[in-house]
């Protein structure tokens, strides 16, 4: 799959400095960065590499072929659920959206997206649950439940190969700035920030595991360690536990802000969902 060409430097990798003056630098950098269009941001950051680039040929092959990618099982369940009438409304996703291959093309690539009723960004899982409660008159699915993962995998699969395209809208800016500052904030008993591992030490070995750049290009994805499909928030909870930080609750605003920042940081990179990771 095509990978952006490596280059020497990026503008946002200033975490060493920013930890010393967190607030001031966060504001300056976020304001400067958010003024860029997604395409400009992509050009500046063309040394970005997906976690895919850090894996060996066998795992890449497993991801690339639907026949060997274990997440295909979840996706096919999602395809079935897509067409099932449910809830008091007795409607299926397909009744409103038709064929996912066309109606859901590119959708996952622009989530989290601003939602007017919530007056803040919501992620794909929250969007699916919103449709369930508002239009199907069914209960929300639990985070990390099989059905929610199946549906989000099916929807995200329709964006495979398309560039991540978080909208450059003013309404998103405060949430992006919050996500960015969470990414650079030291936390947990080990007092580490996401940026210290993923910006400053990507490609190095953390006790034998290669540290990726933390691009969310592949979610939901099948992780060998989980022996199942999991969401981006599950991945982030793993990292937070590693820092001995208290992970945010599933669906917490802080998580969605972080997801939004990670997606924005990966703008222009191709979607891989559902990916495979070690």
């Amino acid at each position: 799959m095509p990978m952006p060409r490596p280059s020497a430097s990026t503008t946002y990798e200033k975490s060493r400095t920013s930890t010393r003056h967190p607030l001031a630098l966060t504001i300056i950098l976020s304001t400067a960065l958010l003024a860029l269009s997604p395409a400009q941001a992509a050009n500046l950051t063309d040394n970005r590499r997906s976690g895919y680039a850090f894996m060996g040929p066998p795992l890449r092959a497993m991801q690339d072929d639907d026949m060997t990618n274990p997440a295909s099982l979840w996706q096919r369940d999602g395809e079935t659920l897509w067409a099932e009438p449910i809830g008091e409304a007795g409607r299926s996703c397909a009744d409103c959206h038709g064929d996912a291959a066309s109606s859901m093309r590119g959708v996952a690539a622009r989530y989290p997206a601003f939602d007017r009723t919530m007056n803040r960004p919501i992620d794909l899982e929250q969007r699916i649950n919103h449709c369930r409660t508002a239009y199907q008159k069914a209960g929300p699915l639990a985070f990390e439940s099989h059905d929610l993962l199946a549906l989000s995998t099916h929807v995200a699969r329709q964006s495979r190969g398309l560039p991540i395209a978080i909208e450059n809208s003013k309404a998103l800016h405060p949430f992006l700035a919050m996500g960015r500052s969470l990414f650079h904030e030291r936390q947990g008993q080990l007092n580490l920030s996401c940026a210290q591992c993923h910006d400053d030490n990507a490609g190095r070995s953390l006790g034998g595991a290669t540290i990726p750049q933390a691009h969310p290009t592949g979610y939901p994805l099948y992780r060998l360690e989980w022996q199942g499909v999991g969401s981006l928030q599950r991945r982030l909870r793993n990292c937070m536990s590693g820092m001995r930080a208290a992970p945010y609750a599933f669906g917490a605003e802080a998580f969605v802000d972080l997801e939004l920042y990670l997606m924005w940081r990966a703008n222009g990179m191709p979607m891989e969902s559902p990916a495979v990771r070690p």
Binding site: E185, R186, Q187, G188, Q189, M240, R244, A245, A246
Partner: peptide, 8 residues
């Protein structure tokens, strides 16, 4: 320290 897991 910020956001430390309760066990620690």
């Amino acid at each position: 320290l910020v956001q430390v897991a309760p066990a620690f």
